[in-house]
């Protein structure tokens, strides 16, 4: 009974927050609503006894991804009025698409395989059952190949991000302390051997003469 109440409360909050993401005027509020949507979804997962997924949703999405989103939204000077342009114009089309999608989904979900009757209720696991351990076990056995490919995709993301954004900046006044310390006399001072030219030598003799005169 309590579980049902918790589910409905948080399901309602999820739907309201998700609607707010696309309807509120201020992009910062939209991002915050998305945070709320993730958070309430995490709680619904928790009621399904999927603790690991719930916690990683909060840590990864709420903690990292959405904070980054918020930074971007706050840093960029977004013209909100321009973003909302055409909202009314595209509204009829949007509503039509939404209605068609809704009808299609309802027709699929209510009958046949996705209806509530045909889904077997899962058996609740014992309190000491570790969801994380179970996930880890299949991740490194059954799905190890897929897991490795996912790792390669992350490597591609790193290589791509660095090669697309790293620029050699030529005008920076960056100092390299180690290079400064390791400097030797030969790097800074250039000793040039010059043949003695006639002009200074004559002046030298002149000055000698003058010295001698005195």
């Amino acid at each position: 009974m309590t579980e049902t109440i918790i589910f409905y409360v948080f399901a309602l909050m999820t739907v309201v927050a998700a609607t707010a993401v696309v309807t509120v005027r201020n992009p910062v509020h939209a991002a915050l609503s998305l945070v709320l949507t993730f958070f309430t979804s995490a709680i619904i997962w928790m009621t399904l006894e999927a603790e690991f997924l719930a916690i990683s949703l909060v840590l990864v999405y709420v903690g990292a991804v959405m904070v980054l989103f918020l930074f971007v939204v706050m840093m960029l000077d977004i013209n909100i009025a321009r973003l909302r342009e055409g909202f009314v114009r595209y509204l009829p089309l949007g509503i039509a698409v939404a209605v068609i999608m809704f009808v299609m989904m309802v027709s699929v979900i209510t009958g046949g395989i996705f209806s509530g009757d045909s889904v077997i209720e899962p058996i609740a696991k014992a309190a000491d059952y570790s969801n994380t351990k179970a996930l880890g076990r299949v991740l490194y056995t059954q799905y190890v190949f897929a897991f490795e490919i996912a790792a390669v995709i992350l490597l591609v993301a790193i290589v791509a991000a660095i090669s697309l954004t790293m620029r050699k900046r030529t005008h920076t006044k960056y100092q390299s302390p180690s290079a400064q310390i390791r400097v030797t006399k030969a790097d800074r001072l250039r000793i040039v051997k010059m043949p003695p030219s006639s002009e200074p030598s004559r002046s030298k003799t002149l000055s000698n003469e003058s010295l001698g005169n005195e």
């Binding site: 897929a146 490919i149 996912a150 390669v152 995709i153 591609v156 993301a157 290589v159 791509a160 090669s163 697309l164």
Partner: peptide
Amino acid sequence: YLGLELLSLSLYA
């Protein structure tokens, strides 16, 4: 899906 994403991500870059 993973193979496709690996291909597509590299191509975008």
